[in-house]
Structures are given as C-alpha cells and as structure tokens.
C-alpha cells in the first residue's frame, strides 16, 4: 500500500458519514464551549450585579485588545486559506499559511504579555479584586489555548511540508477558529464594557 493510499484510508474513516476525526473535533470544541461559556456567564452575572466594576475595567488597554482582535481574525483567515489550499492539493502553500497563523499567535502573546506587565506594575493582580481575578483567569485560560493551538498548528504545518496529514490542516484550523471565537466574546466583555 502506498503512502498516499494510507492517507486516503485515514481520511475516509467514518461511522457516521462524516469523518470520525471531524466529529471528534466538534465534540472536543463543544466541551471547550461549555468551559468558556460557564466562565463567561459567571462573569456576566457578577458584572451586571457590580456596576462599579466598570471603573476597574476602564484600566484595561482597549487599543491593545482591539489590535489583538485584528491579529486573531487575520490569523483565522490564514488558517481557513490553508485548509482551502490543502483541499486543492497545494500542501506547501497550506504549510506556509499555517506558519503565518502561528505567527499571529506569537504577536498576540507578545501584546498580551505587554498588557499583563503594564497592569501588574500598576498594582492590578489576579487577587486585587474579583474583576481582576476574572480578567486574569479568562484571558489567561484563553492564552493557554493560544499556546496549545500554536503547538498543534506548528505540528500540522511541519507535516504538510512533507505532504502528510492533510486532515490536520483542517482540524488544527478548527481549533484555532474556536480560540478566535472565544476572543470575539472576551474582547467586548473585558475591554469595551467599561
């Protein structure tokens, strides 16, 4: 059996009409939605009960949050273009686009590190108040997901460079889009609603 035949066989593995890997990804992403959804809803309920948190939220750097939103949206575009390239059999282009996606993650984390540094040096730490506890926990957990996504994307990009694992381009991209979607909600919650 040739190598590409093996790949083909892996791609077609299914019990439902949809490839099993994709179904598993959606189950996994649904569990992420439950984790972040519970956290975000807890924050929303507390935020509505504490109007005075607005004064604390005013200390977050809105311009940095907006810049990072642009970075994540653009890196998501690269990820979906990578999937499109892989679908058309252009694995080298897919690999390059996945590396560009990872680059977006690097920029995002640098900006986030600058924000944390600025906030902590102003005296706002995770234990300063419930608002700052939520802020650091929500953005920190999201940051961990960014690191995990970058790791998976790098692996998929290296595989794609060797014309392997075309499915990984799509699945790691899906994970990255979810990280983007979570940020779409975190941005107005911690930066805009002040």
């Amino acid at each position: 059996m040739s190598h590409s035949a093996t790949l083909h066989h892996e791609e077609e593995r299914t019990a439902t009409g949809i490839s099993t890997g994709k179904v598993a990804m959606w189950w996994f992403l649904a569990s992420e939605v439950a984790i972040f959804g519970g956290l975000i809803m807890s924050y929303v309920v507390c935020r509505v009960a504490h109007p005075e948190w607005g004064e604390e939220a005013a200390h977050t750097i809105s311009a940095a949050g907006a810049f990072n939103t642009i970075v994540l949206l653009t890196s998501s575009l690269f990820a979906v273009l990578a999937h499109s390239a892989a679908t058309h059999g252009n694995m080298q282009k897919a690999s390059n686009l996945l590396f560009a996606t990872v680059g977006g993650g690097v920029v995002f984390l640098c900006v986030k590190a600058y924000e944390y540094h600025h906030e902590i040096s102003e005296g706002f730490t995770p234990v300063s108040s419930l608002f700052w506890g939520f802020y650091f926990f929500m953005t920190g957990l999201h940051g961990v997901h960014v690191v995990a996504g970058m790791t998976a994307l790098t692996w998929a990009a290296l595989k794609a460079r060797k014309n392997q694992a075309p499915w990984a381009v799509e699945y790691t991209g899906m994970y990255w889009h979810l990280v983007d979607v979570i940020w779409i909600f975190l941005f107005p919650l911690v930066y805009l609603a002040s």
Partner: peptide, 13 residues
C-alpha cells in the same frame, strides 16, 4: 489605590 492594589469605590453600592 495603594501598595496592595485597588479597593473599588462603594458609594454606588
């Protein structure tokens, strides 16, 4: 706002 951090204003609540 002091060395530990910021206590929010409570005159609203």
């Amino acid at each position: 706002t002091g060395t530990i951090g910021t206590m929010p204003p409570w005159k609203g609540a």
